[in-house]
């Protein structure tokens, strides 16, 4: 069995990676290809360079150095031979490939009216390997249930990058949409879920179809600006729960308030570690009074894995718990 992301790499590079120890291969988080410089892989917070023989090295001089031909071939392959269909992706700086993996791009930018319009001379690639960890939300979801409304509470998940925020959000979407609440007294069916997936990370959509299992009753607005997407979803898809990643701009806050008035439950994530500090940000100022979120989940990484802390709407600490880890290491 080979990971799906290997097939987009030029043949000799995927050959080198295939010769890596298989436990490492399945735990890779990032593969970095830079034209004329050493081939690098990242796993578990460590980085390694890869030699032509497929061995790991600490010395970039001994490593394989991809050439122009390799980067051309890779770009051709990940754009389906059609760079012109990727204008929006190039403006955002990454391309999502089948399997929900994201490839970040670096090169020379072309500006138009002061805004980035395009990337030319793309020479740096960062393949971020997405992993689906089903069951990661098992410990969290039962605490987010709102029994009186047979629904879920408005929830904000807070964490620094690379802590599995998106993985958790994805699994929450799947379980809410499926109705597997993980609580003996929660007997209501699955709900209609709307995901606003601005960065194509939650669902990893390809042509609008999700690559990950996000549940049977889930609709996805892919690559859509969050504030606009929330409004569109409410107008057109009648969601019961809206799931959105990384809210932070002022208009996001307004759109969330709108969702509240429409009677839609919201589960959102934001960068950060401190819920108190959060409410000073412009996006959340509107949501502070009266308190919008009924539950805050704060993720942190410990030696044993990920743990989470729950705070109620008044930011009173409720408990700390280890997230059950299934499968391999997960990835934001």
């Amino acid at each position: 069995m080979n990971p799906t992301w290997l097939s987009v790499l030029p043949e000799h590079i995927s050959g080198m990676l295939r010769r890596l120890p298989s436990d490492l291969l399945y735990q890779l988080e990032e593969i970095r290809i830079r034209e004329g410089r050493a081939l690098e892989v990242n796993a578990g917070g460590r980085h390694y360079f890869v030699t032509v023989e497929g061995d790991l090295s600490r010395d970039p001089e001994k490593a394989f150095k991809p050439g122009r031909e390799d980067t051309h071939r890779l770009l051709d392959q990940i754009t389906n031979h059609s760079l012109y269909t990727m204008e929006e992706e190039l403006r955002r700086g990454f391309i999502t490939i089948p399997g929900g993996h994201r490839i970040g791009l670096a090169g020379r930018t072309v500006l138009s009216g002061g805004k980035v319009e395009h990337i030319r001379d793309i020479s740096g690639f960062n393949m971020r390997i997405a992993r689906e960890v089903k069951g990661i939300a098992d410990a969290v979801l039962p605490r987010l249930l709102d029994f009186s409304h047979r629904s879920v509470k408005h929830t904000l998940i807070l964490s620094p990058p690379q802590h599995g925020k998106t993985t958790l959000l994805r699994d929450l979407a799947r379980q809410i949409s499926k109705g597997s609440w993980g609580h003996p007294e929660a007997k209501w069916p699955g709900m209609k879920v709307g995901i606003i997936d601005e960065r194509s990370e939650i669902a990893g959509s390809q042509r609008g179809v999700p690559s990950f299992d996000v549940g049977p009753r889930t609709d996805i607005m892919d690559a859509c600006p969050k504030a606009e997407g929330i409004m569109m979803m409410i107008r057109s898809m009648s969601p019961e729960v809206i799931i959105v990643d990384e809210v932070g701009r002022e208009e996001d806050g307004e759109a969330l308030a709108e969702a509240l008035h429409a009677g839609v439950r919201v589960i959102a994530t934001a960068h950060g570690t401190d819920a108190g500090e959060l409410l000073h940000r412009p996006a959340f100022a509107k949501l502070a009074n009266p308190p919008f979120f009924q539950m805050y989940v704060i993720l942190s990484r410990t030696d044993k894995g990920l743990s989470f802390k729950l705070l109620d709407s008044k930011m009173r600490s409720m408990q700390v718990e280890e997230l059950r880890r299934r499968g391999s290491d997960h990835h934001d």
């Binding site: 051309h72 770009l75 051709d76 031979h81 059609s82 760079l83 012109y84 204008e87 190039l90 395009h118």
Partner: peptide, 10 residues
Amino acid sequence: SLGTSDRRDQ
């Protein structure tokens, strides 16, 4: 050049 640049260029 087919497929390797933006629409205007194509």
